[in-house]
């Protein structure tokens, strides 16, 4: 098991290295001379030379790369142009909100999508199945921003049941920071008012973000279940009298989930990209809205850090998906 995980970790190292090279080239290839860009229009040649020396831009390129890698390793991403704070600090403060939103929507789409997918597989080619198929096509096709605005109009503006935007009502004070995760901190410090309010704020953005993933999970679980039901072992399990619910939800489902887990891994990319839009619409104080600000103000330090972060998250999710596959199917673990 441990060996399996370590091997998977080793396998993602090259892609992480590639990511470092690409981001490094991005800063150093565009624009042609960063020192000129940094110094501004009114700078004298001396000032530019001074900057060049200060940032090591006169060193050979491989040495600059080594310095860059060293900085990344120390989480030194420089200072944000618009918040005037270290980028790393901004990210650490905003990451929990994004993770909370991402996991909430992932949880929603798995908890709803897997049972629906199983039901569709069992009711193959009957009206519930057709209904779910229409639903999952819609789920993929509907644009997140349109859906978000519809939800806001209905539940926040018309019915007034849920808050329109933000993470916490302005009338409430934030719970003391323990983990940085708002909901978690509310529980730990016993701030149930903040917990309930935070949940209400989380609901609409999480549902919006869950929509696309939900549809994908339904589709892949459905086809996984259909495939698995064809197997001889399902006939055998019925012939020796397994109880139907346990047969489906344990013995069939575990065989069917491999494709679903792969999709969940891929979905993560969609969740991060979709998160940018959703965070912007719902004014969610996470990495997504931070990125939008950075793009609007042309803050390259921030964009760079976010790119690295997303890459690292992708790599981590890939490892998790492989481990999940190994846990689902012991034959994979052995082959490694």
């Amino acid at each position: 098991m441990l060996r399996f995980v370590l091997r998977r970790c080793a396998l993602v190292l090259p892609s992480l290295l590639g990511l470092l090279v690409v981001t490094f080239l991005l800063i150093h290839a565009v624009p042609s001379d960063p020192a000129v860009a940094m110094a501004g229009d009114a700078a004298t040649p001396e000032q530019i030379a001074q900057l060049r020396l200060q940032y090591g831009l006169d060193r050979p390129i491989w040495e600059q790369f080594a310095v860059y890698v060293g900085k990344v390793a120390r989480f030194d991403f420089g200072e944000s142009a618009f918040s005037h704070r270290p980028v790393a600090l901004d990210i650490v403060q905003r990451l929990p909100a994004t993770l909370e939103l991402t996991f909430a929507s992932l949880l929603l789409s798995v908890l709803i999508g897997v049972p629906l997918g199983v039901a569709a597989g069992l009711k193959h080619n009957t009206w519930p199945d057709h209904l779910l198929r229409i639903f999952s096509v819609l789920g993929v096709a509907i644009a997140a921003f349109w859906f978000a605005i519809m939800l806001q109009l209905l539940f926040a503006m018309n019915l007034g049941w849920l808050p329109l935007r933000g993470e916490l009502s302005a009338t409430l004070s934030k719970p003391p920071v323990v983990t940085g995760f708002l909901l978690l901190d509310s529980i730990v410090t016993g701030r149930w008012d903040a917990f309930a309010d935070g949940l209400r704020h989380l609901l609409l953005p999480a549902v919006t973000l869950a929509l696309g993933g939900l549809a994908t999970i339904v589709r892949f679980t459905r086809s996984g279940v259909l495939d698995t039901l064809q197997n001889d072992f399902v006939f055998y399990e019925r012939a020796v009298g397994y109880r139907w619910p346990r047969l489906v939800w344990i013995y069939v489902l575990r065989n069917s989930l491999t494709a679903t887990v792969t999709q969940i891994g891929l979905l993560f990319g969609g969740l991060i990209a979709g998160g940018v839009v959703v965070e912007a619409i719902f004014d969610w104080p996470g990495i997504g809205s931070y990125t939008v600000q950075a793009i609007l103000t042309g803050d390259r330090q921030v964009m760079l850090a976010v790119t690295l972060l997303v890459g690292a998250v992708y790599a981590a999710v890939n490892i998790l998906v492989d481990v999940a596959h190994g846990l689902l199917d012991p034959r994979l673990m052995e082959r490694a």
Binding site: Y236, E237, V240, N255, L328, D329
Partner: peptide, 18 residues
């Protein structure tokens, strides 16, 4: 099982692989 036992044709396919 309790009164009628069953032995399948292909024992590899009849067992759940995971």
């Amino acid at each position: 099982s309790s009164r009628i036992g069953f032995i399948p044709q292909d024992p590899l396919l009849a067992l759940n692989p995971v």
